[in-house]
């Protein structure tokens, strides 16, 4: 059973709102403080990618119940330029902009499950899950 919320990502203030909603849902899902902090931080990195590199988009936030496991899934979607070389984009330190190049790789490390789908000229979808440990 899942319940989904969607938040727009078009301004820097939207990134803050994504963090706050993620924190609230992570608490409701029973994640401990460290895991809450990890998924909130991952959400912040991915929301900024959506804004800066994807030209804006939205995130779908879903609380998961899977065979007794509780978790939180965040799916970031944009219709931006897409990523030509995902393997390169996932490398630590690789950046096409002014960041540190830790956004995608860092978000992946902070999550239990990570999925990215990107098409050049069509956009990028990044989905992460944090399970209650």
């Amino acid at each position: 059973m899942t319940k989904a919320d969607t938040l727009p990502i078009h301004t820097e203030e939207d990134i803050v709102r994504v963090r706050q909603m993620t924190r609230s849902l992570a608490q409701q899902s029973g994640l401990n403080l460290v895991d809450q902090t990890k998924i909130v931080t991952a959400a912040s990195e991915l929301a900024r990618n959506t804004l800066v590199y994807g030209g804006g988009g939205h995130v779908i936030l879903e609380r998961l119940q899977d065979a007794g496991r509780a978790g939180l899934r965040l799916t970031f979607e944009d219709q931006g330029p897409g990523i030509a070389d995902i393997e390169l984009a996932l490398r630590d330190g690789y950046t096409s902009g002014k960041g540190l190049g830790l956004g995608l790789s860092g978000a992946k490390r902070l999550s239990n499950e990570f999925h990215i789908d990107s098409r050049v000229g069509e956009g990028t979808t990044v989905s992460i899950i944090k399970w209650k440990s």
């Binding site: 403080l33 902090t37 990890k38 830790l102 790789s105």
Partner: peptide, 14 residues
């Protein structure tokens, strides 16, 4: 710096 923040920063690579 809160402990959970320190743990997360290191995992993030910062």
């Amino acid at each position: 710096i809160q402990p959970a923040v320190a743990i997360t920063l290191v995992e993030l690579g910062i």
